[in-house]
Design a protein around this nucleic acid. Structure first.
Length: 567
RNA sequence: CGGGGUGUAGCGCAGCUUGGUAGCGCGUUUGGUUCGGGACCAAAAGGCCGCCGGUUCGAAUCCGGCCACCCCGACCA
């Protein structure tokens, strides 16, 4: 590819609103361009990377026997209505109607559609197990797209689906996908770890996410410093000495706390640490049911855990009317005498706490769990740095990560809702056991950049680099140089090496700066200077030293270097 | 969705407080000189100052409304 005709120009400066290194470099190196909030177009260089990422995933999917298919982007409402997701996904989906008034959704994901085909194609246990996958657009009306390609509203996902006879088969499919993911990410240069995750609005129960740890990530991951425990914060738990302490102190007594409505204010006025207090949160779920959540003053509520526990799509703070119905007073609410379903986090132990008195300007001291109030024991708090690992009691650390892939073990969840059954060996109808497995291509591409760059630009892993060798003619206006560079470029291409050939009439500084920015793994320079010795200079991106080789054998040697790097 | 911010040439920005015919750097075009790390000289092109309305003799500037984009949070594969 001649750079003089390349569509898309490099930018000397990134727009100021691009914040993360990967976002800035992605724009500067002409990988992709924004079209609107959360909508990006690939430019030629970026699209080549995206296709290589796809190809790696395709090879790993094929290796485990998954079969490539392709489903539509525009999907009829009827299938989504079967599972109830037509309604539940409404806030985050793009919809339209055809001229006949029929409703459609830009596919948010493809479980319903694959299950629909599966129930028609699969009649017998003899056809199982089977896995299919495709690379297809997803439309998600994210309320807040961010950081370039990391969170967008339309993107290509590799989504795979496994269909098995039983849990045992599903387990095998799940772990074969897990293995394929690990290989695919390693091949594209991503250092991904698999962590336990919540299933969110995907339904089902067991799930893992593949996370690349980087400060630019939006997810928080709890990682044990001793064992292999790793979990997303929305699911992470810890070892807590529940109820270990039991105080048989005096009965609760009221204390005047005028205007003291927050833990922070109490801490200051009573001169006690946050963990001496009980925090009682009155929450209401999507159906309007109200629940009181009791936590120690130093612990935060983890909403995803609470949603999961209540099997609801949404939790909000309660209304004034809810407070009145529960006999609670905002700012002075406490578990003693509260008229509401009460959930007590496992972080609450047996000590005597200071808690709201459910009376204006008053708190109670010496409030003891079990003696003065009761509730269901639950785990709905955020873990934090230093907490004890639930598996080994080692210290947890909290890191940020980008979720580049996920795998879900649904079991009969979709089959049950969509009547997806097969005829089993014993003559009975059984549900198709389902799993789904996604990787966001664009997010993977930018995550590679986020983790492979220096102060000059991108350092592409060669397996996904837009080209393998950047041939530079210096200067292109010199006949002899141009002829030598043309022939090197042609020779390399003839050997199947992917080259970007900088034949532009630019100065050395501009060409080298662009080469560093674009980040192709090898740079082969032909210049007046190298021509004097009848040589070609070869330099690896990121290396400090260049290598000089005779021009006659240069193409051969460079091609060999590329082969070695790819191996 | 809550909070904050920004919209002026392709990109980065100044001008707005105090209203008076729109500027700087980079980039682009042309000519010339250069040529191994974002060259130099000269000339030039390029602007519904986000949109609509209001105030005013006069609005990039003041007022109102709207739109777009970004950041933090919430939420979300």
């Amino acid at each position: 590819m001649r750079q003089s005709t390349l569509f898309g120009r490099t930018l000397r400066e990134a727009p100021t609103d691009a914040q993360t290194p990967g976002h800035r470099l992605m724009l500067r190196a002409a990988i992709a361009r924004p079209l609107a909030a959360g909508l990006y177009s690939w430019l030629p260089l970026g699209f080549r990377v995206a296709r290589k990422v796809e190809q790696i995933i395709r090879e790993e999917m094929d290796r485990i026997g998954a079969q490539e298919v392709r489903l539509p982007v525009i999907t009829p409402a009827e299938y989504w209505k079967e599972t109830g997701r037509w309604d539940s996904l409404e806030p985050v989906t793009f919809r339209t109607r055809d001229h006949g008034g029929h409703e459609y959704m830009i596919a948010y994901t493809h479980e319903e559609l694959v299950m629909h085909h599966a129930r028609n194609e699969i009649l017998s246990y003899r056809q199982l197990p089977v896995m299919v996958y495709h690379f297809q657009e997803k439309g998600r009306d994210e309320q807040r797209p961010r950081a370039g390609l990391l969170r967008v509203r339309e993107f290509v996902m590799k989504d795979a689906y496994s269909i098995d006879k039983d849990w045992e088969g599903l387990d095998r499919s799940y772990w074969s996908q897990h293995g394929a993911y690990a290989r695919a990410f390693a091949r594209m240069g991503l250092d991904a770890i698999s962590v336990e995750s919540d299933t969110g609005n995907m339904g089902g129960d067991v799930a893992h996410e593949f996370q690349v740890l980087t400060e630019v990530g939006e997810d928080r991951i709890a990682i044990c410093s001793k064992c292999d425990y790793k979990a997303n914060m929305e699911k992470a738990t810890r070892h807590a000495e529940a109820g270990a302490v039991t105080e048989h102190g005096p009965a609760p007594s009221e204390i005047a706390t005028p205007g003291t409505t927050s833990i922070e204010a109490l801490r200051t006025s009573l001169r006690q640490p946050p963990e001496a207090f009980l925090k009682t949160l009155l929450m209401r779920d999507a159906a309007g049911s109200v629940v009181a959540v009791v936590l120690p003053g130093d612990r935060e509520l983890n909403e995803p855990k609470l949603r999961k526990l209540l099997a609801t799509s949404d939790v909000k703070f309660a209304t004034d009317a809810d407070f009145a119905a529960a006999s609670g007073v905002p700012g002075f609410i406490g578990p003693v005498g509260l008229n509401a379903r009460t959930l007590v986090d496992i972080s609450v132990d047996g000590r005597g706490y200071v808690a709201g008195a459910n009376k204006r300007d008053a708190h109670l001291r010496n409030v003891v769990l079990g003696r003065d109030f009761k509730g269901e024991r639950v785990d709905v708090h955020d873990v934090r740095e230093g907490d004890a690992c639930p598996k080994c009691r080692g210290a947890l650390t909290i890191r940020r990560g980008v979720e580049i892939g996920n795998i879900f073990k649904f079991g009969p969840y979709y089959a049950d809702k969509m009547n997806g059954t097969y005829l089993a060996e014993d003559g009975t109808r059984k549900p198709l056991m389902f799993g789904s497995y996604g990787i966001g291509i664009g997010r993977a591409v930018q995550t590679i950049i986020e983790t492979h760059f220096d102060d000059k630009g991108i350092l592409w892993p060669i397996a996904v680099a837009p080209y393998q060798v950047h041939v530079i003619a210096l200067p292109s206006t010199d006949e002899a140089v141009r002829a030598a560079a043309d022939s090197l470029a042609a020779d390399l291409e003839g050997m199947g090496v992917e080259i970007l050939y900088d034949d532009r009439e630019e100065t050395a500084g501009v060409k080298f700066a662009d080469a560093d920015l674009i980040g192709i793994p090898f740079r082969a320079t032909v210049s007046k200077r190298t021509l004097k010795e009848d040589q070609v200079e070869l330099k690896a991106r990121g290396a400090t030293e260049a290598e000089f080789m005779p021009r006659a054998t240069a193409a051969e040697r460079i091609a060999a270097a590329v082969r070695r790097a790819l191996a």
